[in-house]
Amino acid sequence: MTGADRAAIISEITGKPLRFTVLDEAQLRLSLPQAGVPDRYIDSLIDIEKHFLAGSFNIVTGDVERISGRPPQRLREVLLQQLA
Rank of each mutant, 00 (worst) to 15 (best):
S56N: 01
Q81K: 04
P33N: 06
D39R: 07
M1W: 06
P71I: 02
M1N: 03
D43Y: 07
V37K: 07
I10G: 00
R66N: 08
Q34H: 12
L18C: 05
G55C: 01
T2M: 14
P71G: 09
R29A: 13
R74A: 15
I13G: 14
V22A: 10
R40E: 10
V64F: 12
S31C: 02
I42P: 01
T14Q: 13
A35I: 02
D5C: 13
G36C: 07
D47I: 02
A84Y: 00
A35H: 13
N58T: 15
S56D: 03
V22I: 12
I67G: 00
P33R: 08
G69L: 06
L80H: 12
E65C: 08
E77L: 08
P33S: 04
M1A: 15
L28E: 08
P38V: 06
S31Y: 06
V22T: 06
V64A: 08
S44A: 12
D24Y: 04
L30E: 14
G15C: 03
G62S: 14
A8M: 11
E12N: 04
V22S: 06
V37S: 03
I10V: 15
L45K: 06
I59C: 08
H51P: 00
A7L: 09
G55F: 04
R6H: 03
G15A: 08
I48C: 07
A54M: 04
L79F: 10
I13P: 14
D47T: 14
V78Q: 07
I9V: 15
I10H: 02
L30V: 01
E12S: 12
Q34V: 09
I42N: 04
S44D: 13
E49I: 10
I42T: 00
D43S: 12
Y41H: 15
R40F: 12
D63T: 11
P33H: 04
R29Q: 09
M1C: 02
S68Q: 01
I13W: 04
M1K: 02
T21W: 00
A54E: 05
E65D: 10
G36F: 08
A4T: 14
V64M: 03
F57G: 06
K16P: 00
L79K: 08
K50W: 10
K50R: 15
A8D: 10
L79C: 13
Q81E: 10
Q27I: 04
F52D: 15
D24G: 02
R66S: 07
V37F: 06
G15M: 05
Q81N: 07
V22W: 03
D63K: 09
G69W: 01
L75V: 14
G3A: 14
A7I: 05
A26V: 03
T61L: 02
L32K: 13
L32I: 07
L32Y: 08
N58D: 15
P72I: 01
I9P: 05
L32W: 13
R6Q: 11
L28D: 05
L32G: 01
E12V: 09
E65A: 11
R70D: 11
P17M: 11
T14A: 15
G3C: 12
I59P: 01
D5E: 07
L75Q: 10
G3H: 10
P38Y: 08
A8W: 08
Q27M: 11
S56T: 00
G36W: 08
L83A: 04
S68T: 13
R70K: 14
S68F: 10
R6A: 07
E77V: 03
